[in-house]
Design a protein around this nucleic acid. Structure first.
Length: 307
DNA sequence: CACAGAATAT
DNA sequence: CATATTCTGT
């Protein structure tokens, strides 16, 4: 809940949604970010950063105050600061502009709906313990990251930019510049991605007529260079920072699978709610309906954290 | 020790 | 199945 200090949307770029609780993570790194920033790309990749996309309804639901417009720079700085400071709730960033925002919804567990007043639970956490007291420190788990097509796209772009050889989690993570993305998230995805690439390498002709290839990977072309080696030179690439998205009320998804039915087109609610960003226009293919499978249900996303 | 990568676990 | 977490080796 909290604030959305910088939730500008990026043409609907990444939305990582995490379904669960947020967690602290100690990923702090800074370093060559500067370099990339300097060599910023043309405007091709830089969408308007200042629109607030939280629909009024959601905003009110989340108690998100109306957002002032931000400039790209502000947004950039804001996201960095926000997350940096977020880690340890102590120091506010010097800049008062940014407010710490908590990445996800509070509702983490909400395990028992009903009362289930089984005798036992009464004492443990019942009414005495303040849930929102401490404890937020380190025992919270990060919500599962959802690799939306947009995110994956960025991932692939970065990976192809570095040679396969240089494409290691940490670097990828840094270049992707998605707040909240952790090295682990990337490592895991990379593992799968490599597998996919490998698998595909064997199948040259297209052939996979399988309509079922909904896989996220299927939607994003694998750079040929992958099969062979691709020694990319140190060409710095830089991606615009990804603003944190807000926590969209994801319903049932998240931990428990069973999002919607299988074969049915499920997006009914799943994503609807979100706010898929608007913005029109820019990405021809960006969105959900496109790259993925027909009935893929898409979660949204959001994340937080910092590099 | 931090990291990458494979192996497991959820 | 998609991600996360754990385990190994460097």
């Amino acid at each position: 809940m909290g604030e959305v200090g910088d939730d500008t949307d990026y043409e609907g770029e990444f939305a990582l949604i995490m379904a669960n609780q947020s967690e602290d993570d100690y990923d702090e790194e800074s370093g060559r970010v500067r370099d990339w920033v300097m060599g910023l790309p043309r405007s091709s990749e830089l969408p308007p950063l200042n629109q607030s996309l939280v629909p009024p309804e959601l905003a009110s639901a989340f108690q998100i105050p109306p957002e002032p417009g931000h400039s790209a720079m502000e947004v950039d700085r804001a996201s960095h600061q926000t997350f940096s400071s977020l880690r340890r709730n102590s120091q506010p960033v010097s800049n008062s502009n940014v407010k710490p925002f908590i990445p996800f919804n509070p509702s983490s567990h909400t395990p028992n709906h009903m009362a289930s007043a089984t005798a036992d639970d009464a004492d443990s956490t019942a009414g005495l313990d303040d849930p929102d007291q401490d404890q937020s420190a380190r025992t919270l788990r990060r919500p599962r990251l959802v690799w939306t097509p947009q995110l994956h796209k960025r991932f692939v772009d970065v990976v192809s930019h570095l040679g396969l050889k240089n494409a290691v989690p940490k670097t990828i993570m840094q270049l992707m510049n998605v707040e909240g993305l952790t090295r682990e998230n990337v490592a895991s995805h990379l593992q799968k991605y490599r597998l996919y690439v490998k698998r595909m390498a064997g199948l040259s002709s297209e052939g996979p007529a399988s309509p079922s290839d909904n896989s996220l990977f299927a939607s994003t072309p694998v750079p040929q260079s992958f099969t062979r080696d691709s020694p990319q030179v140190p060409v710095p690439m830089s991606y615009a920072p990804v603003p944190g998205m807000y926590p969209v009320p994801v319903f049932g998804m998240g931990q428990h699978h069973h999002v919607n039915g299988h074969g049915h087109h499920g997006m009914g609610m799943g994503m609807g709610m979100g706010m898929m960003p608007i913005t029109g226009g820019s990405h021809g293919s960006g969105g959900y309906g496109n790259g993925f499978g027909p009935s893929a249900s898409y979660p949204h996303h959001v994340n937080h954290g910092d590099k």
